[in-house]
Design a binder for these strands. Structure first.
Length: 275
DNA sequence: CAGAGATTTCCTGATT
DNA sequence: GAATCAGGAAATCTCT
């Protein structure tokens, strides 16, 4: 096995948010739903619209519910607005998941106000840069473990959210379907959704159409490899995985343009506003 | 342990 | 010629 040591230039490999340990390991143990310490501002009131969506995605992940079942467009708002929603607003916006979301945000608000003993968690109060990917770097086994999650209720899908899928052969136990945490396309999406944390790795070509372009292909591959604990990841291999997404319509082919991809109908959470 | 899903690895050939 | 793109095929990993 001759792994050519990346012909990549150094300039490609220095994402501002962490050349070595790019991802602050922040699996956390806050109370209740907030199993991960939210990497963003602890005050949801300060979240941007993107962070609100990330939170949505996160909560869905925690409850094993496909995020595509939540109408993200109903949450086209920043943290301040989100925090002002009533319980009923959440129910209206997210159906049966509304209660769970309400519970989660209430808890986060509460935690933010009370400054929960984050100190006892191994998190540095002030990270230089918040991890751009909320669920990044799940050390296998250390992360959210549904089986031991203290408060995770068995979210029972109700008629109001007909599409809630996931396997519920065992109604009392939530299960992850996502074997390795974040999927590649989600990883890519999250880089794009965090422009302030994206040191020129990938860039939107057409934001509304979901067209984006890799600027530092090998750097992204290295980052992906780091996340997967695979130091031999290359753009060549990453792109093969990307091509598999065409068939699943998570990505659409963009002909003739190198390093350019486009999100497909099955990719969720990338739109600025899905109105 | 088997099976499934999602890559990962390798490879050949075509394009840019 | 190098970097990409296209896919097929098989291997690997993790989870159910």
């Amino acid at each position: 096995m001759s792994i050519t040591p990346m012909t990549t230039s150094d300039s490609q490999l220095t994402p501002t948010w962490g050349p070595n340990n790019s991802y602050p390991e922040v699996p956390l143990v806050m109370s209740g739903y907030t199993t991960y310490l939210w990497p963003h501002d602890s005050q949801p009131q300060c979240w941007s619209k993107y962070q609100v969506w990330e939170w949505l995605q996160q909560v869905m992940d925690m409850h094993q519910i496909d995020a595509s079942n939540i109408p993200f467009q109903n949450f086209d708002m920043d943290g301040h607005q989100l925090c002002s929603l009533s319980y009923q607003d959440f129910i209206r916006a997210a159906g049966s998941m509304g209660a769970t979301l309400f519970h989660s945000i209430t808890e986060l608000k509460w935690n933010g106000q009370c400054r929960v003993d984050i100190g006892q968690l191994e998190l540095k109060p002030e990270l230089d840069f918040p991890c751009p990917f909320p669920d990044v770097s799940y050390p296998p086994g250390e992360i959210f473990n549904p089986a031991t999650h203290p408060l995770a209720p068995a979210v029972s899908p109700t008629p109001s959210s007909p599409d809630i899928k996931r396997s519920y052969s065992r109604p009392h136990q939530v299960k992850r379907h996502n074997p390795r945490g974040t999927h590649l396309w989600e990883f890519i999406r999250d880089i794009l959704l965090n422009p302030e944390r994206n040191p020129g790795l990938i860039k939107w070509e057409d934001r509304t159409e979901g067209v984006f372009r890799f600027l530092k292909s090998e750097a992204v591959a290295q980052l992906w490899g780091k996340k997967k604990n695979n130091s031999s990841m290359t753009y060549e291999k990453l792109s093969r995985a990307m091509r598999y997404y065409y068939k699943r319509e998570i990505l659409e082919r963009v002909d003739g343009r190198r390093l350019v991809y486009k999100f497909g109908r099955n990719a969720r959470g990338w739109r600025e506003s899905e109105k």
